[in-house]
Every structure is written in structure tokens, then in C-alpha cells.
């Protein structure tokens, strides 16, 4: 298959599937009542899904899933904990981002300086 055609086939199919996933329950529950137990379960979607998204990004190399060297991972984990604390206290995206990036750079510089 031609490369451009294949790319656009991916865009069209994945785009459609993504949209249908996003619309799915919004459309279904616009006519039906949301079951009580399900409504309770929905409250824990953000905590569970966002944690599952974040953790691999912090501890694994992008794409492969291979674990980074300890000297590369430890600053990322420490910076993520600092950012989590700031996010918990402030509810502020930019402060969380700044705290996380600054901690990471400082720790990386410290590790490079130690050798």
C-alpha cells in the first residue's frame, strides 16, 4: 500500500474509533439511567486511569518499555514526587510543572557534578 494512503487510512479509522469511544457512554446514558453502582465507580476513573498513564512515563524509557539506568530514573521519580506534592497542595498546573522540571534539572546537575 502507498505510504500516504496507509497513513490517511490510519488517520480516518483511528480518528473514527477515537470519536466513537469518546461519544459511547455519553450517547448511551443520554436516554437511559446511569446504574447507581456504575455512577459510584466512575468517581475513581481519574485516579486510576491517570496513575496508570503517569507511572510508566516516569519509570520507563519512552516507547520500548525498557527500564532506564538508575542514575536516569531516580531523579525522575524524585522530581515526580516533588511535583505530586506541589500539585496536591496548590491544584495549580504551572506550579506543578515548574516544580517538577526544576527538581529534575537540579537533580540531574547534581548527579553529573558528583560524577
Amino acid at each position: 500500500m502507498d505510504a500516504t494512503l496507509k497513513l490517511w487510512a490510519v488517520i480516518a479509522i483511528v480518528g473514527t474509533l477515537n470519536y466513537l469511544s469518546r461519544l459511547s457512554f455519553i450517547a448511551i446514558f443520554s436516554r437511559r439511567h446511569v446504574p447507581v453502582l456504575l455512577a459510584r465507580a466512575f468517581r475513581y476513573v481519574p485516579a486510576a486511569m491517570l496513575t496508570a498513564l503517569v507511572l510508566p512515563m516516569v519509570v520507563e524509557a519512552s516507547g520500548g518499555g525498557a527500564v532506564r539506568a538508575a542514575s536516569a530514573v531516580v531523579p525522575r521519580i524524585a522530581a515526580a514526587i516533588v511535583a505530586g506534592f506541589v500539585g496536591f497542595r496548590t491544584h495549580n498546573t504551572l506550579k506543578t510543572l515548574a516544580a517538577g522540571m526544576l527538581s529534575l534539572w537540579l537533580l540531574q546537575a547534581a548527579i553529573a557534578w558528583i560524577g
Partner: peptide
């Protein structure tokens, strides 16, 4: 610059207030 680290950080900003 480790700019890729900003990706988990923006998710951390979303999830931390949940705790």
C-alpha cells in the same frame, strides 16, 4: 532539557488533587 518529562508532569498535576 528532558522536555519529555513535562508529559507525565501534566498528568501529575491532574491526578495529585484527587488524593
Amino acid at each position: 532539557w528532558s522536555l519529555d518529562f513535562a508529559v507525565p508532569l501534566c498528568f501529575i498535576a491532574l491526578v495529585a488533587p484527587q488524593f
